[in-house]
Simulated scan of single mutants.
Amino acid sequence: MPETTDRTSANAGTRSRNEAGEKGTTLKGRRGTDAPGGMRGDTTVADRVVAKIAGMAAREIPEIHNLGGGMARAFGAVKERVPGASGDITRGVSVEVGERQAAVDLDVIVEYGASIVDTAGDVRANVIQAVENMTGLEVVEVNIAVHDVHLPDEEEESEGGGGRVA
């Protein structure tokens, strides 16, 4: 009887923590010299990596003004004013990463005049493509919550001035 290889168990992932204690997923490779070079060993992808990929992919859609809702945007605006601090690309992004799958939740602000339904579809497609291509994880869902619509004449929260107190 010919010997068969069970690829599903050879490539199954497990949850783990990296050296910094962050949660992530470990994609298990095959062992031994008979396995192709690209399949030997394990690859660990931290949850924060998936969140960054999803955040960047969502921001690539032109109709997306910003990510984050209410308090997240307020804290982000304060953080951006601190010298040396940079904006957090994962603001407004929440992910759940399992062994072989990921789910993404996004809080977005859409530009006025854009079709919310079409924009959400574009964001979903871009996030799914980016996360799946970069991590090898299957994205099972991308949930989008539209928190606001950015009007053309609204000032940015990060711009200074205009206040009564100097």
Score class of each variant (00 low, 15 high):
residue 116 I to N: 02
residue 130 A to F: 11
residue 119 T to Y: 02
residue 51 A to H: 10
residue 154 E to H: 03
residue 60 E to Y: 00
residue 102 A to Q: 14
residue 114 A to P: 01
residue 56 M to V: 07
residue 79 K to G: 07
residue 157 E to V: 00
residue 153 D to F: 03
residue 147 H to N: 15
residue 130 A to H: 04
residue 123 V to A: 10
residue 107 D to T: 09
residue 120 A to P: 02
residue 78 V to W: 10
residue 74 A to D: 08
residue 150 H to E: 08
residue 82 V to A: 13
residue 67 L to R: 15
residue 69 G to R: 15
residue 98 G to Y: 05
residue 110 V to K: 02
residue 106 L to C: 09
residue 140 V to M: 11
residue 60 E to C: 01
residue 87 G to F: 11
residue 59 R to A: 11
residue 160 G to N: 08
residue 89 I to H: 12
residue 56 M to R: 15
residue 55 G to R: 15
residue 58 A to N: 02
residue 129 Q to H: 10
residue 112 Y to C: 03
residue 85 A to N: 13
residue 160 G to I: 02
residue 79 K to C: 06
residue 98 G to K: 04
residue 154 E to T: 01
residue 139 V to W: 13
residue 102 A to F: 13
residue 46 A to D: 13
residue 62 P to D: 12
residue 82 V to F: 06
residue 59 R to H: 12
residue 111 E to P: 04
residue 81 R to I: 08
residue 84 G to D: 07
residue 157 E to A: 02
residue 96 E to Q: 12
residue 76 G to W: 08
residue 52 K to A: 11
residue 56 M to C: 05
residue 113 G to Q: 09
residue 158 S to L: 00
residue 133 N to W: 15
residue 91 R to C: 10
residue 83 P to E: 02
residue 104 V to Q: 07
residue 48 R to M: 09
residue 120 A to N: 07
residue 124 R to Y: 12
residue 139 V to Y: 11
residue 86 S to D: 13
residue 130 A to V: 13
residue 70 G to M: 05
residue 128 I to V: 15
residue 130 A to I: 09
residue 134 M to V: 09
residue 127 V to C: 03
residue 77 A to G: 06
residue 78 V to S: 10
residue 68 G to N: 09
residue 78 V to P: 05
residue 122 D to C: 04
residue 97 V to Q: 04
residue 142 V to S: 06
residue 109 I to H: 02
residue 51 A to S: 12
residue 65 H to T: 14
residue 47 D to F: 14
residue 49 V to C: 06
residue 80 E to H: 14
residue 119 T to H: 02
residue 46 A to N: 10
residue 114 A to M: 01
residue 107 D to H: 14
residue 50 V to G: 09
residue 78 V to R: 06
residue 90 T to P: 04
residue 161 G to V: 01
residue 62 P to A: 15
residue 107 D to V: 08
residue 76 G to V: 06
residue 145 A to I: 04
residue 135 T to N: 11
residue 69 G to L: 14
residue 78 V to D: 09
residue 96 E to T: 14
residue 70 G to R: 08
residue 110 V to Y: 02
residue 50 V to C: 05
residue 45 V to G: 03
residue 53 I to Q: 01
residue 104 V to R: 11
residue 121 G to P: 01
residue 142 V to Q: 05
residue 57 A to S: 02
residue 132 E to G: 07
residue 158 S to E: 04
residue 54 A to D: 08
residue 127 V to E: 00
residue 102 A to V: 12
residue 74 A to C: 06
residue 113 G to I: 03
residue 121 G to M: 11
residue 61 I to F: 01
residue 88 D to C: 09
residue 101 Q to P: 09
residue 151 L to C: 03
residue 76 G to F: 06
residue 95 V to A: 05
residue 162 G to W: 08
residue 98 G to N: 10
residue 152 P to E: 05
residue 120 A to Q: 07
residue 131 V to P: 11
residue 109 I to Y: 00
residue 46 A to I: 05
residue 133 N to Y: 15
residue 96 E to V: 06
residue 92 G to W: 14
residue 96 E to I: 07
residue 93 V to D: 00
residue 113 G to R: 07
residue 77 A to W: 01
residue 57 A to F: 06
residue 126 N to W: 04
residue 141 E to A: 10
residue 99 E to G: 07
residue 84 G to A: 13
residue 52 K to H: 09
residue 132 E to F: 13
residue 160 G to Y: 03
